[in-house]
């Protein structure tokens, strides 16, 4: 009779071992019988303990500003709006004056409105990939549920703006690469400024 019930008994043994593994005294018993044990319960109790996420974890984008919120890197080129697959970005801009000429702040144009609809966003990160100015990056906050779809789920420009130090804090390696790239661009742009006036050599001295 043993061989007909044998597979069932083996299965029951595996479950019993898992059961004992979840208790410290059970692990002691199993080690005493020299059976290899795993670490105990694999489940963590959210929200008391939260899982540590990888650095690259992405959920919803945010706009980056340096120093003050009006020094945002975005110039309203609308490339991310065009490339976003589910079309969840809505940009109104760049800001123009009454004659229709673009206004500039800190030497750049800026958007009037920048809305991203969280209920549509796919977290695909294509907006970050295509932005030529490193103005939009992915945030890793995911506890963003709300009870109202239009007021709380559509993030306007104010809600989206976050400082560059925040970006460096949540994604150090990526921020380091971005900062390097931006510094290199600035260094290339600096010699384009008019060189200081060299003193003219006196004629025929």
């Amino acid at each position: 009779m043993a061989w007909i019930g044998y597979g069932v008994l083996k299965g029951l043994g595996v479950t019993l071992k898992t059961f004992l593994e979840t208790y410290p005294w059970g692990r002691a018993v199993l080690r005493g019988l020299s059976i290899p044990v795993a670490d105990g319960l694999f489940t963590i109790q959210y929200p008391d303990t939260k899982q540590q996420h990888a650095e690259r974890f992405r959920y919803f984008p945010f706009l980056v500003y340096d120093e003050t919120p009006d020094n945002l890197r975005c110039v309203a080129c609308k490339i991310c709006e065009q490339e976003c697959p589910p079309q969840c970005i809505h940009i109104v801009g760049p800001a123009k004056d009454e004659q229709g000429r673009p206004l500039k702040a800190h030497g750049r144009t800026f958007p009037v409105e920048f809305d991203i609809d969280m209920s549509i966003c796919m977290s695909c990160r294509i907006c970050v990939d295509v932005c030529p100015f490193d103005a939009i990056e992915m945030d890793n906050q995911y506890e963003l549920s709300a009870s109202d779809r239009y007021e709380h789920m559509v993030f306007n420009q104010e809600k989206l703006l976050k400082p560059a130090e925040y970006f460096q804090q949540i994604k150090p390696t990526e921020a380091a690469t971005v900062d390097q790239r931006l510094a290199a661009k600035k260094a290339k742009a600096a010699p384009a400024a008019p060189p200081p006036q060299a003193p003219k050599p006196p004629e025929g001295s």
């Binding site: 479950t15 019993l16 898992t18 059961f19 979840t22 208790y23 319960l41 694999f42 489940t43 109790q45």
Partner: peptide, 13 residues
């Protein structure tokens, strides 16, 4: 509780 422990989770807590 017992089934949860066999399945590596906690059960009602």
């Amino acid at each position: 509780k017992l089934i949860a422990r066999m399945q590596n989770r906690f059960g009602p807590t």
